[in-house]
């Protein structure tokens, strides 16, 4: 993380560079965090990552909640929030059901 701090000390660094730095580090975190996953947990882990990737709902909510947005833009955002919500609720519930099955087997 120290690299980011040093960059923050510089004056004219583009926000894109910061974002790229965060992006690259998060890739490494994601890679190493699930590196040692138990094979039996592959499917629940995928269900949870699927639910989490619906965090895109944040963008859709901002677009839907914008005061000055056109009707068309709001309509698209409404669909975005709805679809992401299906995924969030569905993904977390199905993960819970899967984990429940594991418990029964043990």
């Amino acid at each position: 993380m120290s690299a980011v701090l040093i960059m923050a000390g510089g004056a004219a660094v583009s926000p894109l560079v910061f974002q790229l730095a965060i992006f690259v580090m998060a890739i490494f975190v994601g890679y190493y965090v699930v590196w040692s996953v138990t094979p039996a947990l592959h499917t629940p882990l995928m269900a949870v990552t699927n639910a989490i990737s619906s965090v895109i709902i944040v963008g859709a909510v901002i677009a839907l909640g914008a005061a000055d947005a056109s009707g068309f833009s709001k309509f698209l955002a409404f669909l975005g929030v709805t679809l992401a919500s299906v995924n969030i609720f569905g993904g977390f519930i199905i993960t819970r059901r899967m984990l429940h099955m594991f418990k029964k087997k043990d």
């Binding site: 690259v24 998060a26 890739i27 975190v29 890679y31 965090v33 699930v34 990552t49 989490i52 990737s53």
Partner: peptide, 8 residues
């Protein structure tokens, strides 16, 4: 989050 999900 996108990077986490993409990498995992």
């Amino acid at each position: 989050t996108g990077a986490l999900v993409g990498a995992s």
